[in-house]
Design a protein around this nucleic acid. Sequence first.
DNA 1: GTGGTCTAGACCACT
DNA 2: GTGGTCTAGACCACG
Lengths: 122, 122, 122, 122
Amino acid sequence: MILIDYKDTRPLYEQIADKLSQLILCGVLSEDEKMPSVRSLAVELSVNPNTIQKAYVKLEQDGIIYTIKGRGNFVSKKGDFIDEKKRLFEMKVKEMVDEGLLLGYTMEMLIMIIKKGGITHD
Amino acid sequence: MILIDYKDTRPLYEQIADKLSQLILCGVLSEDEKMPSVRSLAVELSVNPNTIQKAYVKLEQDGIIYTIKGRGNFVSKKGDFIDEKKRLFEMKVKEMVDEGLLLGYTMEMLIMIIKKGGITHD
Amino acid sequence: MILIDYKDTRPLYEQIADKLSQLILCGVLSEDEKMPSVRSLAVELSVNPNTIQKAYVKLEQDGIIYTIKGRGNFVSKKGDFIDEKKRLFEMKVKEMVDEGLLLGYTMEMLIMIIKKGGITHD
Amino acid sequence: MILIDYKDTRPLYEQIADKLSQLILCGVLSEDEKMPSVRSLAVELSVNPNTIQKAYVKLEQDGIIYTIKGRGNFVSKKGDFIDEKKRLFEMKVKEMVDEGLLLGYTMEMLIMIIKKGGITHD
DNA sequence: GTGGTCTAGACCACT
DNA sequence: GTGGTCTAGACCACG
């Protein structure tokens, strides 16, 4: 379900939160579905439960999941966080376009790259 | 010339290397121009010379500057590193497109965002 | 395990990285085995921990080891770096052959030297 | 005649001494021929005369040239230094063979590489 | 406890 | 004066 890349320099909990976020966005985990428990996921990924806990806290702060004490963590409604995600995404796109122009790409070339890139899946 | 963001969690030397890299790419520092000395830049940014040194080592490893002992650091010819930069950039674009599609954008919408984004300057 | 040659003009960390690289190549340290910790090796060799750290950073950049924060450094899979090593090696051999020819050796003599040389161990 | 590689980390004088040594070995400069004067070579290579001086001192220590005060530097008889050169060369070859075997080459493969390598010229 | 980063201060080689 | 290296000691993030 999730693969940890130990060569990645980012904190583990951030990697895990990102992966979970992706799984939720692409619909593998759907609205109001229960997330795996902190302990079970910790066992599955062979990491410390604290690390999973930290990832869940981050997801909750981002509005992607919500917590019910004694019951577990659940996937939020997409509407609750997707706008924020989109705002951040558009900011990133703008930075990237600037970087591309600095590298000497034209707008047309950037659009070409976009069109090629959209098919990749891993 | 360079502003350090102490809220940024990345290492100082990485921030500094990134900023310098940008200045070189956008032509503020041109080919074979002398970079500020390790010590002068350390004073200017109020950081330890070793931190600047580390940033310069990174830039050298990336082929962006070259070093002459006892004389200083100099900006490399753009041809020497721009291809590698472009390769990395196109990889990043592909990841971003995937993320955008997950967020529910269509190709056409992504291209619209690109077109808007290209004008920003900071 | 490792002897430092203080007559060698190269930086300490480079000597150490080289020696470790050899130990890994010849199988004394095997794939995914844990490297000695930065601090323990620093004590063993009576050098500053930062020097070991620098050696480990170099080995990581060369793809010879990988790092897991908070856990330690581990030997990479040989396939990950052996091809690059071989490319560099063949370049060095070519330079050496040129040098030998300049010194007046014939091809046959070089091959004789090779055959004698292959048995040495230190 | 000589190209300086500023990306080479070795001291300038060592690079220059090496290049001159090569020129002598391959016969471009022949026995008892006068070497270029320190000053003229310094001008030609755009380096400090001290650097050339240091290179000449090294060549003299290695027995490759000899100095006559007030007259200049001259190429030694090959017999005077070639044996030492050969001894050092054979030591380097032995190290290289060991390294090659560690990398998984067989003797036969090393000999093949030798044969391919002998044709290169720069 | 482990690695990652930063600071401070020192000495060396090169120009 | 410039970069390259090393030492010493500190703090932080992660497990």
